[in-house]
Amino acid sequence: MTETTTAGASAEAARGPTAGPGTTTITMTVNATTRHLELEPRTTLAEALRDALDLTGTKLACDRGACAACTVWLNGRPVCSCMMLAIDADGQAVTTIEGLAQGEALHPVQEAFIEHDALQCGFCTPGMVMSSAALLERNPQPDAEAVRDALAGHYCRCGTYPHVVAAVLAAAERK
């Protein structure tokens, strides 16, 4: 590194592309649609989805990655959207609960949750469904233990866990 690149005037050169602290353009594919958002770097992915895109199916409860209510897919893998910056999803593909059904046809996991009464208040349900559907993508025939492992991060204060496990196993049968 040369002396000039460490000087204040060349701070940009020394640290690479820099955005913020004001708003910056973030581009991501959300439910198969390209979206351009003007957000501060401190904005979380959960805030971007709910507040900027009005996709309020993604729920915020603990806001610390401790309950997984905010689970969405990032490039097909379930993540806690509250513990990610939206800017880290720049250029990536995000799938939310709104993007899971095909038009009017619910995803098999959604159908099974309804049939097995796998929700009560329903607040944790979008996150549960996203992680369950992701599990079936990579393990189409899980046993009950694999389902419980995949959902270990999710809290349901209504205590629907046994029905959730039954629903995911039933969805696996159906797929």
Partner: peptide, 13 residues
Amino acid sequence: RFAYATPATLAEA
């Protein structure tokens, strides 16, 4: 509020 940098080299980081 903070600025956010994505350096492309370890030295920059």
